[in-house]
Write a protein that binds this DNA or RNA. Structure first.
Length: 285
DNA sequence: CATCAACCCTGAGAGC
DNA sequence: TGCTCTCAGGGTTGAT
């Protein structure tokens, strides 16, 4: 499931080319094909297809978990959600593969294919990217984010850390996996109230977020369920998906609980939480 | 504002 | 072997 590191890995491959395929920067779109109309969020499929021909891909960028194709006069924004992937293939005239939802054919005979088994992914074509991206919080690597400003952000809310960190309007780019990893590295319990963090803890959390994201990017992301560019970060998880396995720090079995409708993995020793508060949480559900 | 549940989907894994 | 059932999960929407 692509989060910031997986999306960054795909964006770099599309921008620069690599083992997985050639770069698409500079290519000119000849036509588009839609195989699953609901994958196109906006505009309506007919307008979407009508506006593509002749557009040049000036740049491939990332904002949060969005892939951003800069078409000069407008932008093509792609969110992979759970199972989406993008591939550059030769346009050999073959029928679309299973789960192909959208394709762009370039003038030079290459094509960009959007494949998405679970159909959660969405694509927007818009002259105003902020209409889609405007509600996003800051990038985790934004240099304006400091321990002080992050602490102020956390203090301004009063929410459980885990769902708050996954809230894209609060901070943009973390998903379930990297949130669990960051909280474990920062030694903070997923249920801890955001307003209760000290400046030191906020700084530690910000550093942990950046650390796990950097590690993920360095390893080309994690490959869970689907293979993403050979990423192998899944072999280096500290907590995520390790229920019952020893905590890499203290050896205590990792526990799993549901927080904000998401499976959440943590070490009960390294990430302490008052037992009374935990019981209140369990009783209140 | 915070929390919660339902929804959109399919493939994988468990149980029988 | 093959069927049915459950679950996972990002983000949106609506209710409390």
């Amino acid at each position: 499931m692509p989060e910031l590191p997986e999306v960054e890995t795909i964006v770099r491959a599309l921008a620069n080319g690599g083992r997985e395929g050639p770069a698409i920067t500079g290519r000119i779109i000849q036509t588009g094909e839609i195989y699953w109309p609901r994958s196109v969020a906006a505009p309506a499929p007919e307008q979407f297809l009508a506006r593509l021909p002749g557009k040049r891909i000036a740049a491939v960028k990332r904002r949060a978990k969005f892939i951003w194709l800069d078409l000069e006069s407008e932008s093509l924004l792609i969110h992979l959600r759970m199972s989406g992937d993008l591939r550059v293939l030769p346009a050999d005239g073959a029928a679309p593969a299973v789960h192909d939802r959208l394709a762009l054919d370039f003038e030079d005979g290459q094509r960009l294919v959007f494949n998405d088994p679970r159909k959660f992914g969405r694509v927007w074509l818009t002259e105003d990217p902020s209409s889609v991206l405007g509600g996003l919080g800051p990038e985790p690597f934004d240099p304006l984010l400091t321990a002080q400003t992050f602490h102020a952000m956390l203090s301004a809310r009063s929410r459980q850390l885990k769902p708050l960190l996954m809230d894209q309007s609060f901070l943009a780019g973390l998903g379930n996996i990297y949130t669990d990893e960051a909280l474990h590295l920062a030694r903070l319990h997923p249920l801890k109230n955001s307003a209760d963090l000290s400046i030191t803890q906020a700084g530690d959390l910000l550093a942990a977020i950046r650390s796990v994201l950097e590690a993920g990017i360095q390893r080309n992301g994690a490959s869970i369920d689907w293979m993403y560019r050979g990423g192998d970060f899944q072999n280096h998880f500290r907590a995520y998906g390790r229920t019952g396995l020893p905590c890499p720090v203290c050896g205590t079995p990792i526990q799993r609980m549901v927080v904000g409708q998401r499976g959440t993995h943590y070490c009960p020793v390294c990430q302490p939480f008052s037992s009374s508060a935990l019981q209140a949480y369990a009783g209140g559900k």
